[in-house]
Nucleic acid binder design. Sequence first.
RNA 1: GGCCGGGUGGCAGAGUGGCUAUGCAGAGGACUGCAAAUCCUUGUACGUCGGUUCGAUUCCGGCCUCGGCCUCCA
Length: 517
Amino acid sequence: MALAFYNTLTRRKEPFIPLNPDCVGMYVCGPTVYDSAHIGNARPIIVFDVLYRLLKRLYPAVTYVRNITDVDDKINARARENGEPIAALTARTTAQFHADIAALNALPPDVEPRATAHIAQMIALIESLIAKGHAYAAEGHVLFSVPSMPDYGQLSRRNQEEMIAGARVEVAPYKRDPADFVLWKPSTDDLPGWDSPWGRGRPGWHIECSAMSREYLGVTFDIHGGGQDLVFPHHENEMAQSICANGRPFARYWLHNGYLMVEGEKMSKSLGNFFTVRDLLGQAPGEAIRLAMLAAHYHQPFDWTADGLRQARMGLDRMYLALRAVAGIPAEDRDQVPLDVMAALEDDLNTPLAISHLHEIATRLNKAVTDEEKAKWKGALLASGDVLGVLQQDVEAWFRWAPEGKDGLSDAEIDRLVAARIEARQTRNFAEADRIRKELADQGIQLEDGAGAPPGGGGGGAALRHWGMGRRRVPIPPHASFPMLPTAPPPPVRALSGPWRQGCLPRRQVPACPCRP
RNA sequence: GGCCGGGUGGCAGAGUGGCUAUGCAGAGGACUGCAAAUCCUUGUACGUCGGUUCGAUUCCGGCCUCGGCCUCCA
């Protein structure tokens, strides 16, 4: 099946034909670094990470650019509240963002440019817009002239009358047209600012993405992604700026993930259903959070629930159990993603369908009798996990996950109890055996009696052996107690899988790629 | 008000003009000292009213309902 996406620009699902099949370019709006990432922020990160993984399998090279917005009035306001220097706030928040999403198995983008490192490019873009009659300076501001672009509004499908009718903000006096938006605004001495032809100031919200996408992907590139809430005004304006400045088309495929709700309600701090990624990482493994997020199609609205997280975790339990049962058998075709999984993902990133195929593969793996079959389905499951970004960890590590501060019994204690239970079973003292099992269960250790020898040797009597340490499952608290473990400290995040680039790379360090200008 | 996207079985969630989604939960069975896990079998679906059609959950229209966005900011 050919790769196809629902393109917001055309409101249709279209076959994906890259500008240059040797290198696909992809830009996704990244975070404004003033606060911890919440689950609403995590959705585009995870969705477009799957897209990135998919594209990397389909094309020889992909350049994935995801910006860091480190100049913004929200940042200024937060720094003032905290009494913290802006640079410290943005650096701290950026580092936490990286750690959080690495725990969700999000791969680092190829380029992660910071807005403050691209002010010169933004100024150049604005000058070009002024020169072409698409922007004007007024009272220290520079504004984009919406009437100068007859096609304005194509992405969000709205016309200017509608926007004026719906405007809920007073129109600034320096605007020639109510729809005009800010490219550059003046900064007072206490605010971040850069010298410009229009005096000391700072960029408007939209211009950074126009400048940075052009810098790293060229004026016309393949895919632009982001949350649906960015379609208007951010992406509409970004597109307008870029098209008017460059005189050429901008992004060719616009992909937007649906909005996110929590337990059926809009997420908000006032409703008490606001969760950061870090909160959730204290309650469930990152992969469970990731799979929960992928359980719905990216384009659909997503309702984040404690039960959904629990089900995702159980689903991964099932897959990891299937893998554990074939731990001693090498996987075959480890890198070959099964066709049905690929077909699902190529069809506009249908992750729920892909996940259903993972379950089917797990079933086949469980049913496999011969080593050949086991090797084949093990490889199929692992390869499928790779493209979705799950099943990435050691099987035993998965089952030993525990929330921070809830380590419970030590391995030595568990071994002692397991040995005592084996002895009780051998003497047919089942009451004692069950008591010990319950004791372990109360500590989150689930013992399973298997017929085979435990991995790594050792073990008990015939037909009375246990496997490994048993499964460590710490139950997620029930629905009603959501938010869960609100005071749990942040968990340690695993080592980053690759070097995160600090800020903007000098151009020469960007991976050589034909799609760059 | 305008634009956009939803409403599928107990739950989550795909998909399709007529043929099993998948997982969890439920029921029965195999296995087990008992469990757990695993495997087998199995039940309950497509908001509403019309239209098109031999036939619609699937296409079209109305309605009801849920939600997002409607700028220079917060």
